[in-house]
Design a protein around this nucleic acid. Structure first.
Lengths: 225, 225
DNA sequence: ATGATAACATGACAAATATCATATTTTTTT
DNA sequence: AAAAAAATATGATATTTGTCATGTTATCAT
């Protein structure tokens, strides 16, 4: 497993602000973890005692609603730091994390990184910045959820997936999600999600092969209300 | 105007983690601001160059949706620090703030407080903790918005107002909001908000006098689906 | 106090979404 | 490859929510 000092992934998150010495210490105590698609990384209510640095793959952060349905709060991808909140609070995590792909991550124990958080202001500011950006994103999701139609939200997640995770060599979206996942991202019933995707298909906006989805008419998706 | 060192309000936010010397410096450069009900404190897209410490009153943080409707993202009350995000990012603010009451706040210029943020780890950690807690709250709001009915959300905001802002001497909710505000908190059409409140009234869950609302049957509100 | 304005209320209807039932297809297991 | 299980698809229908119209009440400025 590569050393943190020379790992390219860290450039995408606040670990890049650690000094070489700090990185070497972190590197010495990190653990490599591999999760298969569908594997539960942690569950709502657990105590996290560290952060995960995502090297490859994608996972969903979900929260169980009172009605028994899961809601996807965020998709976490390569370069993201998972579990930042555990660094500043001893509370149990309010979210579950489930791998949507096969994933590789590095786990860094809280104890090891806490000292850096109090001694390296550059690092702290960077974590703060990441957190602020998460918060901004979250506000935006809230507004989307409150003010946009299910169809619109579905169009947006398709475009989001296209823009952020790209496509395979046949132009299908790289991230393959079940209809149930789409439903719980968009916040609707599974049947409604299925129905909307079927409609998009009929209208030629997308095509599908099994559960794989290809965006055929990105521009029309943009204008869906 | 009272000095920060001796101000009780700061105990509710991360300013309490500043040293006495830091507080004195902050105090020297702060500006007292008074806003009347309805006044716009700042608007989406503005550049904030400081934070507001709320001494009294309540304001709403809103974000304009693409459909032209405002969505309330958070209610900010006594003790809260407004504009934390401006400290860590030079981006324009993504939210507007509008006073719902007459308000008193202190404005602390960014320039003055930034040095503390990089030199006083206790303070930084505290800001980080507040931000983390905001993020958690925001996740919860997202799930509520996505998974609960409008009626349920309305019941919850009434209980929230009751629990967090209390009642006047006649048991009416202290925070008086227009139906339009309720609609934009709950994320629905104004007419729908009105209808639901009327229904609650008919069912004896609340009573109203003008725009003032009294919770008559808290327990039943809890069980609304 | 009074007219003007904004906020509230409610009916009628349309549109969006959820729910339940039941096929059909895809994926997994044996 | 066949059987079983899971996921997807779709119809029928109920419920929720939005929209437009219109009337009423409260609030504000003069």
């Amino acid at each position: 497993m590569s050393k943190c000092e020379s790992c390219i992934i860290k450039e995408f998150n606040s670990l890049k602000s650690l000094t070489r010495e700090e990185l070497m210490r972190v590197s010495a105590c990190k653990t490599g973890k591999v999760y298969k698609k569908g594997h539960v990384i942690f569950e709502e209510g657990e105590t996290l005692n560290g952060v995960y640095c995502v090297r490859s793959g994608v996972c969903k952060l979900t929260k169980l609603s009172e009605n028994g349905k899961d809601q996807v709060v965020k998709l976490v991808v390569k370069g993201d730091l998972l579990g930042k909140r555990s660094l500043v609070s001893d509370q149990k995590t309010n979210l579950s994390a489930v791998a949507l792909n096969d994933m590789e991550m590095c786990f860094i124990p809280k104890s090891e990184i806490m000292s850096d958080l109090s001694k390296n202001p550059k690092f702290t500011m960077d974590v703060l910045r990441e957190m602020a950006s998460d918060l901004k994103e979250s506000d935006e999701s809230l507004v989307n959820m409150a003010q946009k139609s299910v169809k619109r939200r579905m169009a947006e997640i398709l475009m989001y997936s296209h823009d952020n995770f790209g496509t395979d060599n046949e132009d299908y979206l790289s991230i393959v999600l079940s209809r149930e996942d789409y439903a719980s991202i968009v916040g609707t019933a599974t049947e409604s999600a299925i129905r909307i995707l079927s409609q998009f298909k009929k209208e030629g906006l997308i095509s599908t092969q099994g559960k794989r989805i290809k965006v055929e008419d990105y521009n029309s998706l943009k204008w869906i209300e």
